[in-house]
Simulated scan of single mutants.
Amino acid sequence: MGDPEPVQDVLASSPLLLTPEEAATVLRIGRTTIYALMQAGDLRPVHIGRSCRLPRAELERYVRSLETSSNAAPTSKSEFDAARSSRRRIDATPHRRHAR
């Protein structure tokens, strides 16, 4: 195997629009996670006809937003525990599936 291509070269040679699968590869996450991020509104795709694409700039924006949100993360353990417990699900009852 050859030496890995420098990141700058990869970005310079990459297309402007990426498929969700290509975006998942670039971000090193799963394809399902990309679709979940688009559904949640965290990633904003563009549509050309029936094709869904993610602009390279959108991926960069998303990563920058992760960096800024991690900078604002709680610093003490008690603040971390408080933030974590506030995200826990309040209603712990199991959901029932509808009979078909």
Rank of each mutant, 00 (worst) to 15 (best):
I34N: 00
E79T: 03
A82Q: 14
P45M: 06
G30P: 00
E67Q: 14
G49R: 05
F80G: 01
P55C: 07
T75N: 07
R100K: 12
D91Y: 03
S65E: 15
R56P: 00
S85R: 15
A36C: 02
A40H: 08
A82G: 05
R28H: 10
P6C: 02
M1Y: 07
P4F: 09
E5N: 09
P6Q: 04
I29A: 03
I29Q: 03
I48P: 00
L37E: 01
T32E: 10
P45V: 01
G49K: 01
P55H: 08
G49Y: 01
T25V: 07
A24I: 01
I48A: 04
Y62S: 02
S70F: 14
A99V: 05
L59K: 03
S76V: 04
E22L: 04
P4I: 10
A73M: 14
R96V: 09
S85F: 10
G30M: 03
R31C: 01
I34W: 00
R28T: 07
G49I: 04
S76Y: 13
V7N: 11
D9V: 11
L11D: 06
H98E: 12
S69N: 06
E60I: 14
V10L: 14
S70G: 02
L37K: 11
I48Q: 08
R53Q: 06
L16S: 09
R53K: 14
M1S: 10
R100D: 11
E22I: 00
N71H: 12
L27T: 00
D9I: 09
S76H: 11
N71C: 13
Q39H: 11
V46K: 04
L43F: 02
A24W: 00
A57W: 04
Q39F: 07
K77G: 05
L37V: 00
L11F: 13
R28C: 10
G49D: 05
V46I: 10
A72V: 02
R44H: 14
T75K: 15
D9M: 12
V10N: 03
H95E: 14
V10M: 08
S14W: 01
M38L: 04
A23F: 01
L37R: 07
D91H: 04
P74R: 05
P94V: 06
A92M: 14
R100P: 14
H98S: 09
R53T: 03
A82C: 08
M38P: 01
V63Q: 13
Q39K: 15
K77S: 06
S69H: 08
S78L: 14
A92K: 13
